[in-house]
Amino acid sequence: MFNLLGVPPQVLFGQLLLGLINGSFYALLSLGLAVIFGMLNVINFAHGALYMVGAFVAWLLLTYLGLGYWWALLVAPTVVGLVGIALEKTMLSRLYKLDHLYGLLLTFGLALIFEGAFRHQYGVSGQPYPIPDALKGGQNLGFMFLPNYRGWVVVASLVICFGTWFAIERTKLGAYLRAATENPTLVQAFGINVPVMVSLTYGFGVALAGLAGVLAAPIYQVSPLMGTNLIIIVFAVVVIGGMGSILGAIVTGLGLGMLEGLTKVFYPEASNIVVFVVMAIVLLIKPAGLFGRER
């Protein structure tokens, strides 16, 4: 058995895989945050809570209706997206003319409501969610064992991330979206219904969070607290990557997940804070973030 840098390869690759999975979730969530921020100029604090709601919808579907994982993958993001559109229509849309910080405060309140309500109903302990039959088992890659489900999560989130990137950067709809980000008034003058587009963008962004929640359900337990602790790390990821580019959000998310995994191998005590330390260093060297531009 050979060692890599004094660490058995199983441990190293195992943690790297774990980091890659965490990174996939960071990427999915920071992608949603970036899409929403680009269009609405709102930092969606409720993003983590809606990720949790996505996971809970999956769990509720299974527990009460017997609908399995694949249905949940479809239904949960739809539900979360619709909730998001309702929130945008009734509340967020009233705040666009004000300081952006009010959007943060409002979504913070919403996050407390969602989290508090689920916590009140289901307690703090996690609910287990089974891995779907088709994805049980794993592959022996020689240097490590890869559970199928984890491989699926990494592949699925990469596909979603790059699909979103493609849709925004390379399609006509994406072009409208980017144009409306730059100058909503002008785009509206060209006959595009910008308010509807804004609602749909928010719905899409939070649907991504809901989808991430379903993907996460079999890996982490479904718990009311799963979202908020994650969202703060994702905020740090967003600050590191900068809000400038979609691709930046994806790359930074994955990269920081891996970095966290590596820290767990070599200096586990620091694994909780490494992302924040990186954030501080990036801010001191390049305040706009790695991929950002100063707004």
């Binding site: 405060l105 409501i113 916590r119």
Partner: peptide, 19 residues
């Protein structure tokens, strides 16, 4: 009553109506 829900609700009301 769950405290965070009430606190969150006051947050929302303050931001929307009572800035």
């Amino acid at each position: 009553l769950p405290v965070p829900v009430v606190i969150g609700f006051i947050f929302v009301v303050c931001v929307l109506l009572f800035r």
